[in-house]
Design a protein around this nucleic acid. Structure first.
Lengths: 134, 134
DNA sequence: CGGTATCCGGAGAGATACTG
DNA sequence: CAGTATCTCTCCGGATACCG
């Protein structure tokens, strides 16, 4: 989340009945978890069952070891992934998506659907805007 | 969102049937639009009809003039807001959410619902993690 | 295999002052 | 009123090297 900025902004209580205000805060908290560059990719890669570290590194294309570790730690901290260590040699670590993560995945479907429906509209809007703004 | 990092990561085609891969890309593109620190707040503040610049500044608590302008420009560029200038003195500018933005708002409800259901679980998971990680 | 440790660059965001 | 223009700072993310 965008990992960049911290702090959840909110609306003042204006013409707002209260629901918008709450929604802003609440939704922003989800976005903070999910909008970091690699969170979604990792989460999805771990949805089909336990995955090992190296397997994740392969599946999530372009990610560095560092960011994989950091993002995994955050997802684990938020209870979206479970980390299981097998004390063998060589070590074996598995990451498993929790039920909460699976529900999150379902909730993201609406957003994905919106994106698919409007991707072209957005691209068109951008072309128009960029053409009109030299 | 997102502000911070650009570039949409994707999964490699592994055990994935293809849907996960697509979803990652697609959903990330939405998140990039929406996850910048102030996007949601502004969008929500503009959902109830046309809003003027200063009114937005009042409603979106804590935002600076600069970030308000920048975020408005991006939202306009993506076709989520329409900017209407009345050539009067003093100037009057109104921002109106498009239908696309309203659909986006609806799609965010699922995410908000998830957040409300799991906010406490997440907080608990964090407490556990932080307690176990000195 | 599954990580840490370090260094570094760039974008996002804040504060402030000025203007048509 | 509705913005630009600057300057600065933070901190995310990439690259690289090393360790149990």
């Amino acid at each position: 989340m965008s990992q960049r900025n911290t702090g959840v902004p909110s609306l003042v209580s204006g013409a707002d009945g209260g629901s918008h205000t709450e929604m802003t805060c609440t939704v922003m908290q989800v976005l903070e978890r999910v909008s970091s560059k690699w969170s979604i990719g990792i989460l999805l890669a771990a949805m089909d069952g336990p995955v090992r570290f190296t397997e994740l590194e392969r599946r999530v294309k372009g990610i560095s070891r560092r960011m994989l570790t950091l993002t995994l730690r955050n997802l684990e901290r938020d209870g979206l992934l479970v980390r299981t260590v097998y004390p063998t040699v060589p070590p074996k670590v598995e990451y498993t998506a929790t039920d909460m993560a699976k529900e999150l995945y379902d909730s993201l479907q609406a957003l994905t659907a919106w994106a698919e429906r409007n991707l072209e509209s957005i691209a068109a809007a951008r072309r128009r805007y960029d053409a009109a703004t030299p």
